[in-house]
């Protein structure tokens, strides 16, 4: 983009423009990121798929009414038909409606764990990296220790100890999901705290909290968005795994993992509609989140290069 293409500049431009050189005019960081994002076809594709799945799960039930609480044994294991487009479950509940209900809890868990895990990891990592010394050593050894317990064993242990409902599942998955973020954030904080603007800010007498909140955290946004997105994918998969192991929330609540588990149990009875629709939904969702995460990480890198 050259100077000539731009509308009349507001404010002052830098005084010296090199002869024949092109001047890149600063635009807001957000606009820059958004442009790079929209240029990335994969990112847009992933986001579109996710929007469709959210609509399916949350708006779908408003249009397509089913009873997902009462069991109806006359209708058990029905093959797909006009009244039940995707057949029925072993309890006689409509499978299409069940997929919507299952999608709700699956997406809720994924998003909640992504957000909570990121926030906890951010707080832990910034404190460890910024304070340093013994505090850092102790905090990071705790992270190392928890990371070295294979996560599914840790999750099964926690889920077996406490009766599972959606909130417990979210907390249990958050308990393992924040660890990797804490490590990454600590590493970034270590490099950010030596930057000139941080040193300057401290020279002006800014408190540790202000420096951490105002100068370090905003610079972590790119890393956090990417790791948070990938965390959502991991959380959905982990939720499916613990549900498959029978440690998810009990019926009539459901999620895609529990539905997969039912479908697998009835695999040899030939009730394909109980397995494959849920399988396709979960793979497509996780794939879309992963593609989005990869694309966002490209966006974060490209944005830095454009500056």
């Amino acid at each position: 983009m050259t100077v000539a293409d731009l509308p009349a500049p507001e404010g002052t431009l830098p005084a010296a423009v090199p002869d024949g050189g092109e001047l890149a005019v600063e635009r807001s960081a957000f606009r820059l990121a958004l442009d790079t994002f929209l240029e990335n076809r994969l990112a847009v594709g992933g986001a579109t798929v996710l929007v469709l799945i959210v609509l399916f799960s949350f708006v779908g039930p408003l249009v397509y009414h089913t009873n997902q609480v009462a069991t109806n044994l006359i209708n058990e294991n029905l093959t797909p038909s006009l009244s039940h487009p995707l057949g029925t479950s072993p309890e006689g509940r409509d499978e299409l409606g069940r997929l919507m209900l299952g999608g709700q809890s699956t997406l809720e868990v994924g998003l909640a764990v992504g957000v909570l895990g990121t926030l906890l990891g951010l707080a832990w990592g910034v404190i460890a990296g910024y304070v340093g010394g013994v505090v850092d050593t102790v905090m990071m050894r705790i992270v190392d220790a928890l990371l070295s317990i294979p996560f599914l064993f840790f999750v099964v242990l926690l889920a077996a100890l406490v009766r599972a409902d959606l909130l417990v599942v979210i907390l249990v998955l958050t308990a393992v999901s924040w660890l990797s973020t804490a490590r990454v954030v600590r590493g970034e904080t270590l490099s950010l705290r030596t930057r000139d603007y941080v040193v300057a800010s401290r020279g002006f007498g800014a408190t540790g909290w202000r420096v951490a909140g105002r100068h370090i955290t905003p610079n972590l946004a790119g890393v956090l968005i990417v790791s948070g997105t990938l965390k959502v994918a991991d959380a959905i998969l982990a939720f499916a795994s613990i549900s498959y192991l029978g440690l998810g929330p009990p019926p009539p609540a459901t999620n895609w993992g529990t539905m997969l588990s039912t479908g697998i149990n009835n695999l040899f009875s030939g009730y394909w509609w109980q397995l494959w629709p849920a399988a396709v939904l979960i793979v497509v969702t996780v794939l879309a989140v992963n593609v989005l995460g990869d694309a966002l990480s490209d966006v974060a890198e490209r944005r830095l290069q454009k500056r």
């Binding site: 994918a233 998969l237 499916a240 795994s241 498959y244 993992g257 997969l260 697998i264 695999l267 397995l275 399988a279 979960i282 793979v283 996780v286 794939l287 989140v289 992963n290 593609v291």
Partner: peptide, 17 residues
């Protein structure tokens, strides 16, 4: 990436099928 986005037990089920 598709394999990576699949719950491992689902991958196992596909192989079983």
């Amino acid at each position: 990436l598709t394999f990576y986005s699949m719950p491992s037990f689902l991958l196992g089920v596909i192989l079983i099928v």
